[in-house]
Design a protein around this nucleic acid. Structure first.
Lengths: 212, 212
DNA sequence: CGTTATGTACCGACTAGTCGGTCTGTTTCC
DNA sequence: GGAAACAGACCGACTAGTCGGTACATAACG
């Protein structure tokens, strides 16, 4: 493990502080003090406090988007693609919980240019989910009674909200939660016929309540 | 319609501004100017900018909690209770969208006393949902493979997230969205046997995709 | 009834403090 | 020695909150 650069240290510190106190609840002086740096060091690495916020957003959304694309490429059916995406996304909470909290709490304070770049990636992610659902509706595995756009937002909402309540030291691991999410989703989105396919059954939870 | 008091005018104005620019993106001076008031008028009605934020939070959460309790009291089966709660909650978006946006974006900036009071009501709401699911699991209508606590958070997440994307002028009314949410929920939470009951079937969507 | 007293809602110039950002060094590293 | 990385004193714009005052209503008084 190579020793972290000042830039990395600043980002780490800011992340922890932002998660706890919000972007506006943390001053540059605090970040600088806590990271054992200085104003000079900070502004040498970032054009502004805004840019730091942008970096944090970008690291997270870029990672998630890439993982979703990988999930899409590595599987070849709508069900397995969707499940893989949900799993990879949910698992990100272990790694990037502070990023995610900041992402959803503070994105409105991103200005102009920064805001636009993040929004593009966010849109790409949403479109990818909608696309998978559409593909599933076309091949008859997904119910068509519910519009794909709404299903997508329901999914995204369910998963995203996890940042408000997930606790690493709680009774369930993030992996268990990901399994539950997949189970809930498939039960609500698939046709009865599709649910009976063997390949799908593997994603559903049977019998006893899931445990850690 | 009686003419609004200054206090009401300030709250209305602040709501619109907060929704658009965030709590920290709006100054007291702006609120005062836009509402045709003054610093004095503002601080005569509110102890601080914080207290204004608290008021906005409280109006919304109190309303939602009351509606949920009504829903519980007016129905007598887990399924109908849950559906009624989801419907009343979802429909609130027409009425209180700015409150909700502020509620979820800015609640972290509520301090001490204020924060505590809001959290209590939020907890009460969550507990009520969990209770209904538990009751449904006990009478055999709800699946027991998934923990009630997680189901509850999945539901709350799905519904709450609506504030990020719902648009009054979009293709779907909030009532249609509420119906879809109920359909998705029941499909994922109920046992196969329960889904076939006539009383439950009424809450499910059949045939063609739902339209406005 | 007219006048004075009193409470309440509201006004707006002012202030004390804060915080993002700059500027002038100093150190580190090639 | 020169450039990049960093330190920290300093600045100025901005903002939540204050405070002395006004306008107006209702009540008390003679």
């Amino acid at each position: 493990m190579k020793k972290p650069t000042l830039k990395e240290r600043i980002i780490e510190t800011a992340l922890v502080l932002f998660e706890k106190n919000g972007y506006h609840g943390v001053t540059v002086d605090q970040i600088v003090t806590e990271s054992g740096s200085s104003k000079g060091g900070f502004y040498h690495n970032f054009k502004s406090k805004d840019e730091l916020l942008y970096y944090i957003h970008d690291v997270f959304i870029s990672y998630v988007l890439e993982k979703a694309r990988e999930a899409y490429d590595n599987f070849d059916t709508p069900v397995s693609r969707l499940c893989a995406m949900i799993q990879s996304f949910t698992k990100v909470f272990d790694l990037y919980k502070p990023h995610i909290t900041v992402f959803y709490q503070e994105s409105m304070y991103l200005t102009g240019e920064f805001n636009q770049q993040i929004n593009e990636k966010r849109d790409d992610y949403r479109k990818l989910i909608i696309q998978v659902i559409h593909e599933g509706q076309e091949n008859g595995e997904f119910r068509t009674e519910v519009p794909a756009e709404i299903s997508a937002m329901a999914i995204i909402g369910m998963v995203n909200w996890t940042y408000k309540w997930f606790n690493k030291d709680g009774p369930l691991t993030i992996e268990s939660i990901a399994l539950i999410f997949n189970d809930l989703l498939l039960h609500s989105l698939l046709t009865e016929k599709a649910k009976n396919q063997e390949a799908v059954q593997a994603f559903l939870i049977k019998g006893q309540p899931i445990q850690k």
